[in-house]
Each structure stands twice: as structure tokens, then as C-alpha cells.
């Protein structure tokens, strides 16, 4: 009799132990923590910051390292050289002289550029670049550039690149979302969205 009572109590507590704490706000239980939590430093893991900064006063604190930037001055293989013009009005003026390092763009690259344009730019500028993306038509951000207008057709490639790199007016910098090559590809792609210059005199600019 007693045996049965103890057995049932054991079974009940075991099932309760597994079932309880079923709040969706708490992460579930895990077994074998060694196999669950990484010993290596994982992205976004909170880490004792003294390991990184050498600042011993920070010992034991945990910070999240979002942007472990590469060593200053290093360039990824195949990556274009850094863009050196500063983010000021002078740099903006000078950017007109910077040439697009991509002479021609392959059909596959153009397709990829179009894909990236639709992800990053079309949300405001619209899929055809006419300044009528969802954010623009809903009026959340005003004055979004219609890239098919004359002043953007006349705008130099370098200036366009400069604006994508540093942002302009209400537009933020896209340097963190698109690398240099992708940004130049984007300029090429925008050119394909623009109508051909209206008269022969305008076609002196890079097409």
C-alpha cells in the first residue's frame, strides 16, 4: 500500500517538474548545458568586456558587441578601395569628379542590383525609382526623391554614390547595408531606371 503511494507521488512530481514553468515569456529548460551554450564567442553574446578592451575596471561586466569592426586600414579581398571623400559640403561637391569603377555591368549583376534596390531603396523610392514607394505614398516621410527626374539624370555617378554612402537630407547612410561594390552597382541600376536624356546635349554625362 505504502509502495503504491510513494510510487504515485514520485510519478506525479516528475511529470509536474517537466510540465511546470510553461510561461511563454521564459525560455524553456534545456538539458546538457555544455552542448547547448557555446564555449566559443558567438555573435551577439554578452561577454565580459575586460576581455576585449583591456579595461580592468570593466571586469565582470557584460556588454554586447554588435560591431566588431575589422582592423583599421584592412580591405576585404576583392573589395573596392575605401571612399575617402569626407561627409561635408566640400566632399559632396568633389564627389562629382569620382568615376564609377564599374565600367560595364553584367546582366546577372544588374539583376542582383535590382534585387538589392528592391530591398533597400524601393521602400521609399519605388520599384521604378519614381519616388512612390510605400513609405512615400503613405506620407510617412516627405520629399522622397524621384530618381527619374532631370536633376537626378544629370547628377554625376560619384555624387549619387556619395549620397548613398553618407545619406542626404532625410535619407540615412546605406554604407552599413550595402558594400562599396554594391553601392556602385546600385548607381548603375538607377541609371537603367532613368529615361534616356531628352535631347542630344544632355547625353554628355555618364549614362
Amino acid at each position: 500500500m505504502k509502495k503504491i503511494a510513494t510510487l504515485s507521488v514520485v510519478v506525479l512530481t516528475m511529470s509536474l517538474a517537466f510540465v511546470s514553468c510553461d510561461s511563454k515569456r521564459e525560455p524553456g529548460k534545456i538539458y546538457m548545458p555544455d552542448m547547448t551554450y557555446s564555449r566559443a564567442y558567438e555573435t551577439y553574446a554578452e561577454i565580459d568586456s575586460s576581455l576585449f578592451t583591456g579595461d580592468q575596471s570593466m571586469r565582470g561586466s557584460s556588454k554586447i558587441y554588435y560591431d566588431n569592426k575589422p582592423v583599421t586600414g584592412t580591405i576585404k579581398r576583392g573589395e573596392l578601395f575605401p571612399y575617402t571623400l569626407p561627409n561635408d559640403s566640400n566632399g559632396y561637391k568633389m564627389s562629382a569628379m569620382v568615376k564609377n569603377p564599374l565600367d560595364s555591368i553584367s546582366a546577372a549583376d544588374l539583376k542582383e542590383a535590382g534585387r538589392l534596390f528592391n530591398i533597400n531603396c524601393a521602400i521609399c523610392h519605388g520599384e521604378k525609382g519614381a519616388g512612390n514607394g510605400p513609405i512615400s505614398t503613405s506620407g510617412k516621410i516627405g520629399g522622397i526623391a524621384n530618381l527619374t527626374l532631370d536633376n537626378y539624370i544629370k547628377m554625376a555617378d560619384g555624387t549619387m554614390f556619395h549620397s548613398i554612402t553618407y545619406g542626404k537630407n532625410n535619407m540615412g547612410s546605406y554604407a552599413s547595408q550595402l558594400d562599396r561594390n554594391q553601392r556602385w552597382m546600385m548607381v548603375k541600376y538607377i541609371r537603367t531606371l532613368q529615361p534616356k536624356p531628352a535631347s542630344a546635349t544632355d547625353s554628355t554625362k555618364t549614362k
Binding site: S8, V11, L12, M14, S15, A17, F18, V19, K24, R25, E26, P27, G28, K29, I30, Y31, T36
Partner: peptide, 24 residues
């Protein structure tokens, strides 16, 4: 008891490390 307890024990054990519907 065996059936009910066993069901919860096993489903609980399978659920270990799974966090479906987790919404912190």
C-alpha cells in the same frame, strides 16, 4: 497514473530545449 504521468513525462522530456511559442 502510469498512462497520464508517462504521457506528461515523455512530452515534457521531449520539450526540453524546445521553445516553441517563446515570446520574450
Amino acid at each position: 497514473l502510469f498512462a497520464v504521468g508517462g504521457y506528461y513525462t515523455i512530452s515534457g522530456a521531449i520539450g526540453l530545449g524546445r521553445m516553441k511559442n517563446y515570446q520574450p
